[in-house]
Design a binder for these strands. Structure first.
Lengths: 136, 136
DNA sequence: TACGAATTCTGGACAGAGTCAAGTATTAGA
DNA sequence: TCTAATACTTGACTCTGTCCAGAATTCGTA
C-alpha cells in the first residue's frame, strides 16, 4: 500500500491511526484537522485528538502532506505536495481551489529584497469571491 | 492630529482608546493584538480586550490598517496599507519583514486559472530562515 | 453649555484550536 | 518471543478571539 510505504521510507512506524489519517487527507483535500479526525474515526472507531495533531504534524515535517492556514480558519491539510501550487479562497463561503503556479516550477521564491533570508517557500493565497457567491 | 482626522474622515467617533491603539499599531508594525493592547494600556492605564478587538476590526474594515495572519501565529497588524506589499517570515524566530511587490502595483492579482472568482487580493508570504537564525 | 440618542467601552462568560504531560499500548528489530 | 523505542490515550490547560448586557462616552443640536 502506498501510504504504508511512504511511512517506512521516512523511517517512522506504521500504525492504523496513521494510515487512516493519510487516507482521510488524501480523500478530502483542504479539510481541517477536525474533519480529518472525523473521517479517521469513521474508519477506526475512535482516535484521540492528540494522535491526530501529532500525526498531521509529523506528516507535514516529512513533507508527505502540506498545511495551509488561511486567516480566519483552522489549519487545512492536503496531500498535493512538491509542485508549488497556490490557493484561491472565497471570502464569503470559504471554498478553496488549487491554482497552479503562474510562473513555473518555483520562481515565485524570488522576493524583490530577501533581507538575507534563505527562502524555501512562497505561499500565495488569492482572496476573492467565487462565482456562485458573486452571483447570489 | 493625523489619527483623529482619519477617524473623522471615516465617520466614526474619536475616542482615547482608538487613538492609543492606532498609535500602537503605527509604532510597532507586525505586532499582535495582545502586544498592541499592552502598548495602549501603557498609554491609557487600562483598556478592555473587547475594545482592542472591536477597534482593530473596525480599522481593518475602514482600510486604515491591515491584518496579516501567518500560520502558527496570532493575527498581526500594520498600518502600511494600499501598496500591495508582501511579507518575509522566519520559520525559526518569526521575525517578519516587509517586501515590496516584485511585479508592480497589483499584477500579482492574476492567477493562472481563476475558477470564475472575482479576485481582490493576492496575499504572498515568503517563508524561510533569517540570516541570524541561519547562522546560529 | 447642557441634553440625549447613538455609539463605544467594560467585564465576565464562553468557544474553538491546539499543546502539554504522564501513563498505557503497540510496533518492529534482535 | 522479548524488549526498547515509538506511538496513542486521556484530561487538563493555554491562547486567541467572540458574545452579551449594562455602564460610560461622544458629539450634533438647542
Amino acid at each position: 500500500m502506498r501510504f504504508e510505504q511512504q511511512l517506512r521510507d521516512n523511517g517512522v512506524q506504521v500504525t492504523a491511526q496513521r494510515l487512516a489519517l493519510m487516507q482521510a487527507v488524501a480523500s478530502h483535500p483542504h479539510a481541517t484537522a477536525d474533519d480529518i479526525a472525523e473521517e479517521a474515526r469513521a474508519a477506526l472507531g475512535s482516535i484521540s485528538r492528540q494522535a491526530v495533531y501529532d500525526t498531521l504534524g509529523m506528516l507535514v515535517d516529512k513533507n508527505l502532506i502540506r498545511r495551509i492556514q488561511p486567516a480566519g480558519s483552522a489549519a487545512r491539510y492536503e496531500d498535493r505536495v512538491g509542485d508549488n501550487h497556490h490557493h484561491l479562497i472565497c471570502r464569503t463561503c470559504s471554498v478553496m481551489f488549487d491554482v497552479d503556479c503562474a510562473v513555473g516550477s518555483a520562481p515565485c521564491l524570488v522576493a524583490s529584497d530577501d533581507h538575507g533570508f534563505e527562502v524555501d517557500e512562497a505561499e500565495v493565497i488569492y482572496w476573492g469571491r467565487c462565482s456562485s457567491c458573486a452571483a447570489g
